[in-house]
Design a protein around this nucleic acid. Structure first.
Length: 268
DNA sequence: TTTCATGTTCAGCA
DNA sequence: GTGCTGAACATGAA
């Protein structure tokens, strides 16, 4: 689930009903998601405390603790927060934060997500060397950072050190709507072209958040509805293709997304 | 049974 | 330091 729009939606979900409520108990069912942190440390920091506020940077969520510092939540590939009462218990609750009458679960089947603690958000962002948030980055900084990238544009968009928040699906979508082959060299684009990619990225991310990241409510012209082998391009009806970039399967339309002079594929 | 998956990290190599 | 590749992590779904 989680790229920037999903995490922003998770943030709003938690803000709506999980702030300023006393956490009576913390139950750690799978210590794996705590990484190096001992369950005892989590219980000590969170037990009896409450979440005061939430912040987001890229795909990372931060929950301010009344006991000091912030809980850091990263959802990996399949994580999501689920607030539930007696009824519908989620299927893969790895850590449970129990309020008086409801429970907030860190639900994550694959357990690639992580919960940690940091004294300040800034210190965490610095330590992980995260780039500016994809919805906060200015056009000028975007041009500056991507104009200096030496490799292909797609992996550069997904590089959390360059800019935080873009993942595999939204990167493909932005490139499709920008009509750029994913292998295009980032530094082969001029200022105007990079500014255009920045505008497309903002439009895609904001649209997704506005629709609650529900793909079924996205425009039918979006490529993400067609992430299957041999699917047809929503633009020209042709057949889409895949290529592996940055270790990830990349969907694109060879007819709509033109390779251009200066592309990475032609280099020696 | 095999393959793939909205992510991150690390080792190894150019 | 930059960039690329492959593997590991852990498990469900097709």
């Amino acid at each position: 689930m989680p790229e920037l729009p999903e995490v922003e939606t998770f943030k709003r979900y938690i803000e709506a009903r999980s702030l300023l409520r006393s956490i009576a108990e913390v139950e750690v069912r799978n210590p794996t998601v705590l990484g190096p942190m001992e369950p005892e440390e989590l219980r000590r920091r969170v037990g009896g405390a409450m979440f005061l506020s939430a912040r987001r940077h890229g795909k990372q969520l931060f929950l301010e603790l009344s006991s000091g510092g912030w809980l850091t939540w990263h959802f990996g590939m399949t994580g999501e927060p689920v607030l539930f009462s007696n009824g519908d218990v989620p299927r893969f609750p790895r850590v449970l934060f129990r309020f008086a009458d409801e429970t907030l679960a860190f639900d994550d089947p694959r357990m690639l997500g992580r919960i940690g603690w940091t004294p300040t958000v800034e210190e965490f962002v610095r330590r992980k060397r995260l780039g500016p948030d994809a919805l906060a980055i200015t056009s000028k900084e975007f041009v500056d950072r991507f104009g200096r990238a030496r490799g292909a544009l797609k992996p550069a968009l997904m590089d959390q050190h360059r800019m935080a928040g873009m993942g595999n699906i939204y990167s493909d979508e932005v490139l499709f709507q920008s009509r750029l082959d994913p292998r295009t060299g980032a530094d082969s684009l001029d200022r105007g072209e990079l500014e255009a990619v920045h505008r497309v990225m903002r439009r895609v991310l904001r649209m997704s958040i506005a629709r609650g990241t529900d793909f079924s409510r996205f425009p039918r012209t979006y490529l993400l509805h067609h992430r299957r082998k041999g699917a047809s391009c929503p633009g020209c009806g042709g057949t889409t293709e895949t290529v592996t970039l940055g270790g990830r399967t990349t969907y694109y339309c060879p007819a709509c997304q033109r390779p251009r002079a200066g592309g990475v594929e032609g280099r020696t």
